[in-house]
Simulated assay, not measured.
Amino acid sequence: MAGTLFQLAFLVVVPFWALMIVAPGWRWSERIAASPYILLPALVVWAVAIAPVLPDFAAEMLNPDLDGVRTLFADDDVVAAVWAQVLAWDLFIGRWIYLDSRERRIHPLVMAPVLVLAILLSPIAMPLYLAVRVPLTRAVTRGA
């Protein structure tokens, strides 16, 4: 079951990433991405995956130590749950970047690589976007 949930976590976020990257200007892409509910499918996968191990997981999170976390991560249910959580977080970050870039009218061809980076490494994509959005916004504003 954990393997299925691990795969499902990815499959439930892919459509939202596809809309933001492949069809960023389509009005339905913006409407769908504007909803915070796009995070729910991944969070449902998280809840199903974490349910069997929630008592142990919660106890470790209340008093974490490296050995205890390492032991938790030996459980496939925990790995599937944490994977779903990471994917939900990446989507949250990507959604914010997408919506902010649309509001600032930053060209989608500039944003596509940033969003792909957000899928892969959101801790790098977020500061990168923050660094480039001001100059790009100014360029858009001057051109308007």
Rank of each mutant, 00 (worst) to 15 (best):
V78H: 01
H107Y: 04
I106N: 02
D90Y: 14
D67C: 00
R95F: 08
A81Q: 11
D77H: 13
P52Q: 15
R142V: 00
A23H: 07
V140W: 02
E103A: 07
M1C: 02
A144Y: 00
L66G: 01
L39S: 01
Q85H: 11
P24N: 05
V14C: 05
F6M: 13
D67L: 02
A80T: 04
F16C: 04
I38P: 04
R70T: 13
L128M: 05
L117N: 09
G68W: 06
M61I: 07
W28P: 03
P127F: 15
I106H: 08
V44A: 10
P135T: 00
W83D: 11
A42V: 05
A23E: 08
L121P: 03
P15R: 14
P24F: 13
L39M: 10
Y129F: 07
L66T: 04
R138K: 09
V53L: 12
D100F: 01
V134T: 01
V110H: 00
V78N: 05
V69R: 01
V79A: 15
P64I: 07
F73H: 07
L87M: 08
F10T: 12
V69D: 00
V44C: 10
W28R: 09
W83H: 13
I124S: 13
D67Y: 11
R104W: 05
W89L: 12
A88Q: 10
R27Y: 15
L117V: 04
L109C: 03
I21F: 05
